[in-house]
Design a protein around this nucleic acid. Structure first.
Lengths: 212, 212
DNA sequence: TATTTCGGTGTACGCCCGTTCACTGACTAG
DNA sequence: CTAGTCAGTGAACGGGCGTACACCGAAATA
């Protein structure tokens, strides 16, 4: 229970490290193929352990997949936090959001690849986990929109509708960014510019919207 | 070469029938899992033939997948044709489009399920085939938008951007429709109503857009 | 120091897979 | 009537899979 002088939880630390290796190996494998086609043995091999040792960390590949969703959601959560912070500092929310989106995708391509690929992939548990996170994301955005449209008579249903559209647009952008080849930053800029204009188009629509 | 009196291509007809059985069996299997996790033997079993006979019809499961994309695109193509025809007859394009979209998804759920699930699934060839069809769809829509915005100074790039946003919104609706449980027509109506308002929001934005 | 805990090992099992090959027999064509 | 075509058969192969089991040795505990 209490930590010893010589090694404070050396074992636990090693365990956590190989656990992370399993997650990393899976994430790497999933950038090419779908999770359903990745085998337990393959993951164990890439992580440098024997297949049976896999069970010391996860009950099954499905369970690992669900944990991986959580891990991959972290950059996305950070993204929304950054976007919110950016809101208060500068005037143009949209430009800031799109810029952050582009950077996050550039810095964590594998995570986004995994999330978008498995969003409608074969493993039901993983699909459900992603759907839950995404619903949370949309509802948070609709709260933000409520703040921005204060005064206009927006129903909560319409706010949800607009937030859903914005999230769909951004996810579409993410998918297109991931399809891009590496080191074609000009294409990336063109895509991000289009994304910004899409969000601006929606904002323009919202400005002249009357909740019926 | 010439057709005989007794049986005009009985053999070819039988072949076509089992070929169709293979495609149908795959489509049915793919509603639950992803294509990458469906085996050749499984498909052959469900189609009622021995595994080796599979090769009389397709080179591999990947090849079958590409053909399946083509087959599943037929209802979608018909949908756009219907939407276009509806355009000329009545005033409200959006309501008509959404209604047709809802009906098509209701009538061909497995096809849409396959297309959306495999759009970013594991099989590269299938992914490419779907992406190509979808790009065609978007560019056709941008042509329609060019006709509708004649007079306003829309650049072709912005037209593409708007069409892309609309397609993303509609695909998002399709995904949500497919997630719905059966026989909850109230939920379906709510979803289609939200989709209609999304498109209307975009149209509203376009009305006050100035291509910069 | 003696004992327990536990992450990782190695073997072994039965199963399903894709693909090969030689074959059969109904339809086709001359 | 005869020869040829070809969709479908059935046995067999080598290989990867998930998983059970007994085991090891270093870290943790007492």
């Amino acid at each position: 229970m209490t930590e010893h002088a010589s090694g404070p939880g050396v074992r636990a630390e090693r365990k956590e490290r190989t656990r992370q290796k399993l997650l990393d190996a899976t994430l790497h494998l999933v950038t090419t193929r779908s999770l359903a086609s990745v085998s337990l043995r393959e993951v164990a091999r890439d992580a440098g352990i024997v297949p049976t040792a896999f069970y010391r960390h996860f009950d099954s590949m499905d369970a690992l997949g669900v944990e991986l969703v959580d891990e991959c959601m972290r950059p996305l959560r950070q993204m929304t936090r950054n976007a919110r912070r950016g809101t208060s500092s500068r005037g143009d929310i949209i430009a800031g959001t799109v810029e952050i989106l582009g950077r996050q995708v550039r810095e964590h391509p594998a995570q986004f690849q995994f999330l978008t690929r498995e969003r409608y992939g074969g493993v039901a548990a993983v699909r459900r986990a992603i759907a839950m996170e995404l619903r949370l994301f949309t509802s948070e955005l609709s709260v933000d929109l409520a703040r921005l449209t204060a005064g206009a008579d927006w129903s909560s249903e319409d706010l949800e509708m607009a937030a859903d559209l914005m999230v769909a647009a951004m996810l579409n952008t993410v998918l297109q960014l991931l399809e891009l080849d590496r080191r074609h930053s000009e294409d990336e800029q063109r895509l991000l510019s289009a994304s910004e204009r899409q969000l601006r188009l929606i904002a323009l629509g919202m400005a002249s919207w009357r909740s019926s």
